[in-house]
Design a protein around this nucleic acid. Structure first.
Lengths: 222, 222
DNA sequence: TCAAAAGTGTTAATAGTACACCCATGA
DNA sequence: TCATGGGTGTACTATTAACACTTTTGA
């Protein structure tokens, strides 16, 4: 096979994943200790390099599964970070994804093994390189999606209360929502359905558990 | 300078630009004859390879200027196309942008020199590689932006009639819009201003010429 | 005089927003 | 009995959608 483009430069290409979770009423981010120099040990997004025979999306999925133990996760491309000096070690072009996972399904065992941990999105440490900027951009993307797509289904367990769903929306949007309006709105769209089950854990009275209607759990990274 | 990532693969990274224009009441796309093997001479998006000391965005701007003669053009990242086999020659990861330009400002001389031409967006030929898919995705991005951002300012000349603006919106959205509702809506947002000038070319009666209010002409690719 | 595009208002439906109290329960 | 979170309705406002005729003028 001849080399058609041999006069051009080749680049390291990485994937970085902004992995969102939701627990304890707060939006969380999964971060790791950076395993390479430069910046070894600094807080970092979950990432990795693209392999020779692997598509960009496949690399993102591989990295995500490696760090969470989960497959078929909701994942979207966010964009490319391609400044020349963004990595002081070598020139690396990074393709950024964001993913939404149910933290209850996350494999806790991996946390220690991978040197990863969940942190509160509103209390982010300084991350290495341009990773804070990536998180910021991912939050914006989430904000503009939450009202139009049922992405909450990927962050919540199968069954959830309306209060949990509201709290998730509030965490993403960053402002409080009126309870009655929220309930009416979310129910009128027909995306969620009430089940017979009740949650007795988070309140004395108990709250009805809801589930997302079929087909609203969108998966994959295409 | 040590090589931190030397164990990883490096890739050719290209930029491809979906360049939209608007003339004769139709949305247009600028294409070229592909200048490389494989697929030499096939219809192709405007593209090029990223240089060693050039950011990804800078590469896109360079390519755009080279093919249009224009600088400071409205440009947005669309995403990365990273399938392993997307280019049968070599593995190339492509970062795709879309740009909006005023075809009247386009340097016609470059058309022949660069082997480029404008074609009607609704009458696209088969493009090389996965370029048709890129155009499709760019059109979707345009559609979802046209109602929220004054991107029309980048496709129209400085002064334009409301009919032209409406026709642009219709071309992008793909369906007819009610004239009265459109006018009321677009005027109420205060993004455009009526000028004293009249257009006498496209109608007997003449139509008022409008311009976008300052600060609405967003430029650059960040 | 007529063809062709410019210009102009009203009404109905829908979606969104603001707002406050009672209920059921376990401790 | 009381503290806690669950659950409910109504009135107002803003936005969107549907719809048809008159005006101007050059050919």
């Amino acid at each position: 096979m001849p080399s058609f483009y041999h006069e051009y430069e080749r680049f390291y290409v990485s994937v970085d994943c902004v992995i969102f979770g939701f627990s304890g009423g707060n939006l969380k981010l999964l971060i790791q200790k950076r395993p390479y120099e430069p910046g070894l040990g600094e807080d970092s997004l979950i990432g990795g390099f693209i392999g020779k025979d692997e598509s960009v999306n496949a690399a993102a999925s591989r990295v995500l599964t490696y760090f969470t133990g989960l497959e078929d996760v909701y994942m979207q491309q966010l964009g490319v970070f391609g400044e020349v000096e963004r990595d002081p070690g070598e020139r690396v072009i990074s393709v950024v994804f964001y993913a939404l996972i149910d933290v209850r399904a996350y494999n806790e065992n991996l946390s220690e093994k991978r040197n990863a941990r969940w942190i509160d999105i509103d209390n982010l440490p300084r991350l290495c390189l341009d990773h804070n900027e990536m998180v910021e951009k991912a939050r914006e993307a989430l904000k503009s999606r939450i009202n139009n797509e049922p992405i909450g289904s990927n962050l919540l367990p199968e069954l959830f209360t309306l209060s949990q769903l509201q709290s998730l929306h509030e965490s993403i949007l960053g402002y409080p929502i009126d309870k009655r309006n929220f309930r009416r709105s979310v129910l009128s769209h027909g995306l969620i359905e009430r089940t017979e089950k009740m949650d007795k854990e988070s309140s004395r009275r108990g709250a009805a558990l809801f589930k997302f209607a079929k087909e609203t759990r969108k998966r994959g990274n295409d």
